[in-house]
C-alpha cells in the first residue's frame, strides 16, 4: 500500500517496484489461462498498464497482488470469451513433446503442469488458476468469474480432476520416453 501511495504521489520508481514484485504472478496467470505465449505476455503487460492508469481506483480493500491478478484474470477471460467457444476447448492437439530430449528428469514439472492445464477446458482452467495460483477464496472466485458459488465449486472440482488426469497422462508419456532412451 505504501508503494501505491508513493506511486500516486508521482513517484515513477514506486510503480517500477510494484512491477518487479508482481510481474511473475501476473505473467503466470496470463500464461496459464491463455495458451498462446505472445497473447499471454500481451495480456500481462496490459494488466500492469491498466493498473497504472486506474491506480486511483485502488482502495486497498484487498492486496495489490490480488487486485492486479484480478485485472489480469478479467483480461484473459474477456480474451477467451472473444474467441470462439470451441477454440477455448481446443487442447494442444499436437502430441506433447518435452522441450529437451533427455531423461525424464529434464522435463520440468512446470512445463508438464502448463501443458496439462492447456488440455482442460478454459472455464475449468480459470477456476483452478484462480484458486491455486491466485489463492482466492470461493467467494472471491465467484465474484471474479461472475458465477454462482455452487458453479464455481463444481468447476474447481472438475478442473482439478481433469488436471490430475492430464498430468498422469503426461507423466506416462515422459516416463515411457525416458525409459526408451535408457
Amino acid at each position: 500500500m505504501a508503494a501505491v501511495q508513493r506511486c500516486l504521489a508521482g513517484e515513477r520508481e514506486a510503480f517500477a517496484d510494484l512491477l518487479e514484485r508482481h510481474k511473475s504472478v501476473v505473467y503466470s496467470v496470463a500464461r496459464h489461462m491463455l495458451k498462446n505465449e505472445t497473447e499471454a505476455e500481451d495480456m500481462a503487460q496490459e494488466a500492469f498498464v491498466k493498473a497504472y492508469m486506474n491506480l486511483k481506483g485502488f482502495r486497498g480493500e484487498c492486496s495489490f497482488r490480488n487486485w492486479i491478478c484480478r485485472i489480469a484474470t478479467h483480461l484473459c477471460i474477456d480474451r477467451l470469451r472473444a474467441q470462439r467457444p470451441e477454440k477455448n476447448r481446443v487442447i494442444l492437439e499436437e502430441p506433447w513433446e518435452p522441450a529437451t530430449a533427455g531423461p525424464e528428469e529434464a522435463i520440468t514439472t512446470q512445463e508438464q503442469v502448463r501443458m496439462a492445464l492447456g488440455r482442460i477446458p478454459a472455464h475449468l482452467r480459470a477456476a483452478v488458476v484462480l484458486r491455486h495460483l491466485e489463492d482466492l477464496s470461493y467467494e472471491e472466485m465467484a465474484e471474479t468469474l461472475k458465477l454462482p458459488m455452487g458453479t464455481v465449486k463444481t468447476h474447481l472440482r472438475r478442473g482439478r480432476e481433469a488436471l490430475k488426469r492430464e498430468l498422469e497422462k503426461l507423466e506416462g508419456v515422459g516416463i515411457s520416453k525416458g525409459r526408451k532412451e535408457k
Binding site: K23, S24, V25, Y27, S28, R31, H32, E41, A44, T109, Q110, V113, R114, L117, V128, V129, R131, H132, L133, G159, R160, L163, K164, L167
Partner: peptide, 10 residues
Amino acid sequence: AAQLIQPLTP
C-alpha cells in the same frame, strides 16, 4: 496436483 501450479518467470 493443482498445487503444482507455480508462478512462471516472465
